[in-house]
Structure formats: C-alpha cells, structure tokens
C-alpha cells in the first residue's frame, strides 16, 4: 500500500488552498496520507490541515529556521521525513512546490514528475508537455515518487477530516548559504486567481495600467479574479503575479473572459481547461477566437463598460 507525504504550503499561519488539491491526487493514488507542516510554529497550520478529508496524520516540524521557507532549508528536512517509508512525496504545483520538489527528488536520487494532471495508478500519471499541446503518460521508475500537482486539474477535498497532529523532530543539518531578505506581496481584495470561479484577463490592447480599470470594473461586478497576458505584464500594466499562461499561472475557472488578448500558444496553455471562454477582441482573426465559446468582435473600451452596466 502507498504511504504518501504531502508537503504543506503555508504563509502567515494559514494553510495554502493548493494543499487541498494536492490531497485530491493522494486520494486517487490511494493509501495512507500524511501532511507535513514545516514552520517556526506550525500549530495553526496543522490544525487546518487536520480537517482535510483523507489525511491520516499531520506531522509538524517546528524550527525557527523554517520561519521564512527557503528550499535550501526545507529540502534536507523533507528528505529525512521521506526516508521514513514514504512511497510518494507530493508538492503543490505552485512556485513553492516547483522550487522545492526537484531539490528533494535529487537528494533522493529519483527523477521527478512535474504537474500531475491525472492519476492512472500508484506510479502512472498524465502530465502536460509543450505548453499543454501534448499530454504525456509517464511511468515513474522504482523508488520514491516525487511529484508536483497541476492545481487546475483537481478539485479541493472536503473539510470533513479530523486527523491526529504529531510534533516530530528531524536532525538534518541545515545550510546557511541561503538567506531570506524580503517579500513584496501584492495585496488584493479580489478572489485569488488560481482558485477563482471566474477570471477576467486583460492583454496588450488595454494600452496602459490606467486603462486596466475597465477590466477591474467588470471583474468586480461579477466577483471575478483578474489576470493578464505576458504582454500586459511586460508593458508594466499589472504586476507579474497576475500573469496567466505557460510561465505564469495555469487556471481552470468556470468562466474566463479574455479582453484584448490575441491568444498566443503560451497564453492558451494557461486557460485551456476553463469551462467557458469568452473572447473580446477587435481582430476577428485573433487565435483566441479558435478556443472561445463566445466571441465578440469589438472595441474593448466600448464593450466592457457596456457589459459591466448590463450585468
């Protein structure tokens, strides 16, 4: 039977929503699942993790060195935990997981599976390649399966659990070559891009950061998160953490409204799994119309305010 370790991502004493989706993969693999919380003081995060369905046990590793998680410090501790009979070590496919998982895999001397999007068995998974234009089924070799989970492909598990929380200590030597300096976080009242049911995204055609207000107005009217294309981010209209696509966030909302976005391969990689795609663009030849369920050819500066008013 599989014994699965899910690494919890958290910040400011709160469990990241990505952990629940990672647990959905553990559920599909089947087996005994533990969640590891590495923190300076992990009590609050562990209590949240214990409520998630399918968790048999929450392991808390408290260490002042974990206050600002860096992969260099977390990896040796996770490697030590992983060696205690785990068949799988799963990470959310966030920047946290992507940075950390390969460091753990290399230390365990195994190849890593990136972005699991479907589970066929304990060691057989689907993952996207070529910006999502090919789906590859891979079979992991013998040894621990270290993997990250593509969040857009799974639903969060229910909060019906009541797992035991156990504080454990690890003796791994922690390096000092990596030091956290600061985090400049973007504060937003809008729904989180990766978990929002609706997302409105703007592209280059917005023309300026000031003009982006028409996108925000529509998003706020329908309670949507706001995303952007690479062009809009590179032009400085919005911060980089709003980028949707192959190198930004991969999302799968119920409704995705692309405004002034042409629909390059790299952008489509991030939205292919959206349930309904709406494209508003003045170029009828834009590739975004090939994937849109509803397309409207027109000037976004007229269409958006009109749409916002009529909703």
């Amino acid at each position: 039977m599989s014994k699965i370790l899910v690494i919890a991502e958290h910040a400011e004493g709160k469990l990241n929503a990505s952990v629940s989706k990672t647990l959905a993969v553990a559920e599909k693999i089947g087996g005994e699942t533990h969640v590891a919380v590495l923190a300076a003081d992990g009590a609050a995060v562990a209590a949240e993790a214990a409520k998630l369905a399918g968790v048999a046990k929450v392991l808390v590793v408290n260490n002042a060195a974990n206050a600002q998680p860096t992969s260099a410090v977390l990896a040796p501790q996770i490697v030590e935990l992983a060696k205690q009979g785990y068949t799988h070590v799963l990470f959310p496919g966030t920047t946290f997981g992507k940075d950390l998982a390969p460091r753990v895999a290399a230390k365990l001397d195994v190849q890593q599976v990136s972005d699991i999007m479907a589970v066929h068995g304990a060691s057989s998974f689907d993952r996207p390649t070529y910006a999502g234009n090919a789906i590859t089924t891979v079979e992991a070799p013998a040894g621990t399966v270290v993997a990250t989970v593509r969040l857009a492909s799974f639903n969060a598990v229910a909060q019906t659990g009541s797992a035991a929380v156990e504080t454990v200590s690890v003796s791994a030597a922690l390096p000092t070559h990596t030091r956290f300096v600061k985090l400049e976080a973007q504060k937003s009242e809008r729904p989180d891009l990766q978990s929002a049911a609706k997302v409105v995204s703007g592209g280059r055609a917005l023309g300026s950061s000031e003009n982006f207000k028409v996108v925000y107005a529509l998003a706020d009217k329908i309670g949507a998160g706001v995303g952007a294309s690479r062009a809009a981010v590179d032009s400085g209209y919005v911060p980089n953490d709003m980028q949707v696509g192959q190198t930004g966030k991969i999302i799968a909302p119920e409704l995705y409204i692309a405004v002034g976005i042409s629909g390059a391969i790299q952008h489509l990689a991030g939205i292919k799994d959206a349930r309904t795609i709406v494209a508003i663009n003045k170029d009828p030849e834009a590739p975004i119309f090939e994937v849109a369920d509803f397309g409207l050819v027109g000037d976004l500066f007229q269409v958006l305010p009109e749409m916002t008013a009529k909703l």
């Binding site: 190849q111 599976v113 057989s124 996207p128 390649t129 999502g132 234009n133 090919a134 789906i135 590859t136 089924t137 891979v138 079979e139 992991a140 070799p141 292919k272 795609i277 009828p284 119309f289 090939e290 994937v291 849109a292 369920d293 509803f294 397309g295 409207l296 050819v297």
Partner: peptide
C-alpha cells in the same frame, strides 16, 4: 520516467461569435 503514451489535449469545439 518511461513515457507510455503521448496524445493531443482534448480539443475545444469552436464556439459562436
């Protein structure tokens, strides 16, 4: 990792304008 199969992603049907 052994690749056992590579397939194109499910295609989206063309919507309406």
């Amino acid at each position: 990792l052994k690749t056992t199969k590579t397939v194109p992603p499910p295609s989206r049907s063309k919507g309406i304008v």
